[in-house]
Design a protein around this nucleic acid. Structure first.
Lengths: 252, 252
DNA sequence: CTTTACATTGACGTTACGTAAAGGTGTATA
DNA sequence: TATACACCTTTACGTAACGTCAATGTAAAG
């Protein structure tokens, strides 16, 4: 497939000016120039622009991008896997920011207090040195693997301590739910405590917490037989009770 | 609490130059100037800078930010809730980018094909007009609520069509798993199809897909009695079989 | 054959600061 | 008391990554 500037730009979601600029600074030259002097882009340029945009998204300067993708040792696949890591990091930062906003909202509503320092959590970019991060990871993988349940933990990205807490929380949820169910009141103290424990438990496996998602999951506990079977086994109707409690907890 | 430029900058994670610039363009003036001409910032400035940085993070220009936060009708709490929405949107975009990277990696490994257009998914910023988005949402909430299972769908942010597909997929996963289990081979075609269907199903409830998380969940199916109970009920050992299939599928 | 859409190369403008220069201030230590 | 040193000030020029004209040539459609 061949593209003229405009077609190319439209498809990739950049401006024609950007493409010309990229040509100018030599970061992305067209495949060829036709008889009228038009820039014609081909397949290789499509893929290269994609790479460039990945780096750009991560805040890398064009000059550095140039030296990266122009290097003869440039390994596209490896770069992609690194992109992936960085994007996940960026998502963590974004999650931190979101939780910051959540906290700030709670602050204005007078539910909590926040230090000045906390107010800027999530803005600061983690400027991790590539090599350090990589070696650190290798070391961690090498030496932490002797612990039990390693595969699970590692896959979920949890530390031993976190994992222990998580399983302990799961037990607590069950116990509290059982006790709360007997009161019959989903808005009661015990039921609300169950909901809160459940939220805490969730936070170990969720990248970020939102009331809506929590409530959605609660509904799914009722709709999805997998969960219903589990909770209702010991106590028929427990799934619905838990859902009601969570709905009240999240204010849905 | 009072801060000099440096203290303030350090706490907020910005440069002193930035603070001076913000003073210069009148977007954030210090509370007062002391006898030596030093800028002194107070509590109000801390909160204001936080607001500014929220907007900046969203890519809003300083000139626009100025007119927003300087407006006498400026409602901090309302603004925060809007920030939250925008940040969630941004996260969706980021998730799209991550899934793009995942796809591109799969592409280089020859597992799938990708159109040129797909290659740029997630880069384009959704430039939603505030009002349109708001009205559109209100309208959607008003008129879509007559459908069945509304609460669940709405809470999960799914359309009727999506929800139907999701439940249909869940059934398919079960059926295929049952058939695959009988073959006894987790690397076989049927088992791998099960894993793929499972991935598809996941994508409805997960904000983003990653192999690691998928594999992690598979392990949890074995460790967490909630899931084990469900899958093993009809077919003892099904949970572990599914986990093995997914481990192979994700290459873990 | 004309209109319209799209291409080209300059060239200057813009945003949000970085970076240095030249100098005043506050305080701990020799 | 001197002086070192970290901190503050303003002024001013530099920069990255384009946006935005302007002037002009080309392709395709009616």
């Amino acid at each position: 497939m061949e593209y003229t500037v405009q077609k190319f730009a439209q498809m990739a979601g950049v401006s024609t000016r950007t493409l010309r600029y990229y040509d100018e600074i030599g970061i992305l030259k067209p495949a060829r120039i036709n008889s009228s002097g038009y820039r014609i882009y081909g397949q290789a340029e499509v893929d290269r622009l994609q790479q460039i945009l990945f780096y750009r998204e991560l805040g890398v300067g064009l000059e550095r991008i140039k030296s990266i993708v122009a290097a003869p040792s440039f390994d596209g696949t490896k770069a992609l896997k690194e992109h992936r890591e960085k994007l996940l990091e960026k998502r963590e930062q974004l999650d931190a920011l979101i939780s910051n906003v959540d906290k700030t909202i709670a602050l204005t509503e007078g539910r909590i207090t926040m230090s000045d320092k906390e107010k800027f959590e999530g803005f600061k970019q983690k400027l991790v040195d590539d090599n350090e991060a990589k070696y650190g990871k290798e070391i961690r993988e090498k030496y932490s693997d002797q612990t039990v349940n390693k595969s699970n933990q590692r896959l979920m990205g949890l530390s031993q301590e976190q994992y222990d807490k998580m399983t302990k929380l799961a037990t607590e949820v069950n116990e509290t739910l059982y006790a709360a169910f007997k009161t019959g009141d989903p808005s009661g103290e015990l039921a609300q405590k169950t909901a809160d424990l459940h939220r805490q438990w969730l936070c170990y496996s969720w990248t970020s917490y939102s009331k809506e998602a929590h409530a959605g999951l609660a509904q799914m506990y009722v709709d999805d037989p997998r969960f219903t079977a589990y909770y209702d086994e010991k106590q028929p109707g427990a799934s619905e009770f838990l859902r009601d409690a969570i709905f009240i907890y999240t204010g849905t």
